[in-house]
């Protein structure tokens, strides 16, 4: 389980804007403050990730690791219902950005603190994206396609799984730990599971490789309300399923959004 470090030569200002809650603010909020925070965030972020793949028994929803990990929660089980293997991923940008954020608040630079926090979230997602791409490329070479990455806390997958998940995903060299309250430290860290599904013919035929917002928290489904937004989704049972993927989805504040 080697630790990979990823170059971060920019941090996506549009994503940082979104994570800062400014998606709809437009020009009313100065772009320079966001790009400046992104630039400063690059000084603090050290993107690292590790992952490990395991066989997956979809009948019992069990990751065949040592020790085995049974997945509790209907949503995560649905997410992996076609998977033969899973990749457990852990990624972090280290603690420096949260320290800088705290200092900003202590010094009265509230806005910058808020923006740096959003930049940190953007950065760790970008690191996870880079790792995700390596995982997808490797899987594709073996005839698999990858599901989108699914993290503890999504849907009904309880965050208490972090304690069991992290050691299977990341080695100690990654310097991520889990608190008693099941939070990751450094805060700008993520764990996730990616399912690997055998490719059979047209890979576009299955919707479950895209974010299923209905699997996410209720708050996310409540805001999918306009006709335009509904167009981007199918309703399966009590779930909203993305048909077109993130690029076509108008729900810009979805926590699983990849773009």
């Amino acid at each position: 389980m080697p630790v990979y470090r990823f170059p971060l030569t920019h941090i996506d200002a549009a994503e940082a804007r979104r994570y800062a809650g400014l998606a709809k603010a437009g020009e009313a909020f100065p772009e320079e403050m966001i790009t400046s925070a992104c630039r400063e965030g690059l000084l603090y972020a050290e993107g690292r990730a590790a992952w490990h793949s395991y066989s997956y028994d979809r009948n019992t929803a069990t990751i065949l690791a040592n020790p085995v990990l049974s997945l509790e929660g209907r949503d995560i089980q649905n997410h992996l219902h076609e998977a033969e293997e899973v990749v457990l991923l852990a990624a972090t940008i280290g603690p420096a950005i949260e320290q800088a954020t705290e200092k900003c608040f202590a010094d009265g630079h509230y806005t910058k603190g808020l923006l740096l926090d959003a930049v940190g979230t953007t950065a760790v997602e970008m690191v996870a994206d880079k790792a995700n791409r390596m995982i997808e490329e490797e899987a594709a070479r073996r005839g698999y396609r990858a599901t989108w990455r699914y993290s503890p806390g999504y849907g009904d997958w309880d965050v208490s799984v972090q304690k069991a998940l992290l050691p299977l995903a990341g080695p100690s060299g990654l310097d991520i730990s889990v608190t008693e309250g099941c939070m990751l430290q450094p805060q700008k860290s993520i764990t996730a599971v990616i399912g690997l599904i055998p490719r059979h013919g047209n890979p576009e035929s299955t919707d479950d490789t895209e974010p299923s917002e209905g699997n996410l928290k209720a708050a996310n489904t409540e805001s999918v309300s306009t006709d335009k937004e509904k167009d981007a989704h199918d309703i399966k049972g009590d779930k909203l399923i993305c048909r077109k993927g993130c690029a076509a989805c108008p729900k810009t504040d979805c926590i699983a959004r990849k773009l």
């Binding site: 400014l22 709809k24 603010a25 009313a28 403050m33 509230y110």
Partner: peptide, 17 residues
């Protein structure tokens, strides 16, 4: 009312400070 967003409120707070 959704006309401004949290970072803008924080900018105002900084100005208050």
């Amino acid at each position: 009312a959704g006309r401004v967003f949290l970072p803008q409120v924080m900018l105002a707070a900084e100005t208050m400070r």
